[in-house]
């Protein structure tokens, strides 16, 4: 048996943690986009990830569409679901308080999950890895090629979003809504459209996360809730509304879980991540990179 040193193990934990963390980070970014415009935590965010994975399986592995086609079609379909979510569950609410809006997203997630169970059944599905399954040896750690795709898509998503929010008119308008919806509305920005856009964007990002993680972890209809909770944890850890915070939060949670499982106790690995989260919140009530000032003007 080849030498497998402790240092190699640590490096392996780090790589695994960053990959899992990237998925959490993508979910967290999705949370943030909607939160910034609406102050809602969209608890159906995990369902977008699940739908992304399962629709991709259907288009690519079952219907046989090539990856390059199936990928964008899946993202578009999930984006449509995101739009429907806004139109059917969020916008009709007459007296929106943050809590009723959250309950509406819970209801939506129940409906999406139930429908997915009806369409795909309860079994897990597999998706072929994008560039084969031959693992790469790097510094003694073993890396699946799919890991690079997950981390890579996180980076691409972050770059595209930065460009969108900094360079385009719509993106700037969305940021304006986030800062002050009333003022934005006075400036002629259609806040309703911005909300729709925020749901579409975060659905699309959720779909990307689902598509890239399915070759690693398989996907089944009820995976969404757990991912939503991890993403929620990540976004709170990093600070609500902060995009760098979401990424940092996701990567930290993933890494703690991985090191916790490897070095201490795998049964308690989720608990470690949450204890760290609580400890951070008790000392920094607005998360690592969240701004105290902003959190004060937010209703929620």
């Amino acid at each position: 048996m080849e030498e497998f040193s402790f240092a190699n193990q640590l490096f392996q934990y780090l790589i695994t943690g960053l990959t899992v963390g990237s998925v959490y980070a993508m979910v967290a970014i999705g949370f943030n986009i909607i939160y910034n415009v609406t102050e809602i935590i969209n608890l159906a965010q995990g369902e977008f990830v699940m739908l992304g994975g399962l629709i991709m399986v259907f288009l690519h592995a079952v219907a046989g569409l090539p990856l390059i086609l199936a990928f964008p079609i899946t993202v578009i379909l999930v984006t449509l679901v995101g739009m429907l979510l806004d139109r059917l569950a969020i916008r009709p609410i007459r007296q929106p308080s943050v809590l009723t809006l959250i309950i509406a997203t819970i209801a939506a997630s129940i409906i999406i999950k139930g429908t997915a169970m009806f369409i795909w059944g309860k079994d897990p599905f597999d998706l072929p890895a994008f560039s084969g399954r031959t693992p790469i040896n790097f510094l003694g750690a073993v890396i699946q090629p799919q890991y690079f795709w997950v981390i890579g898509f996180l980076i691409v998503t972050v770059i595209l979003l930065t460009l969108f929010f900094e360079k385009t008119i719509i993106g700037k308008a969305m940021s304006a809504c986030a800062d002050n919806p009333d003022a934005a509305s006075l400036m002629g920005i259609n806040v309703k459209w911005m909300i729709l856009l925020s749901f579409s964007l975060s659905a699309a990002i959720g779909a990307v996360a689902g598509i890239t993680v399915t070759p690693i972890s398989l996907m089944e209809y009820d995976r969404g809730a757990m991912l939503a909770i991890k993403g929620f944890g990540a976004v709170v850890l990093g600070g609500l509304g902060s995009f760098p915070g979401a990424i940092l939060g996701g990567l930290i949670l993933g890494t703690i879980e991985s090191f916790g499982a490897g070095l201490i106790s795998s049964g308690y690995k989720d608990a470690f991540a949450l204890i760290v989260l609580l400890a951070v919140l008790f000392f920094r009530p607005s998360g690592l990179l969240g701004s105290v000032e902003i959190s004060k003007i937010k209703r929620f």
Partner: peptide, 10 residues
């Protein structure tokens, strides 16, 4: 869980 590499690494 998404990935069990950590446990298997151990």
């Amino acid at each position: 869980d998404t990935d069990m590499t950590a446990q298997l690494t151990k």
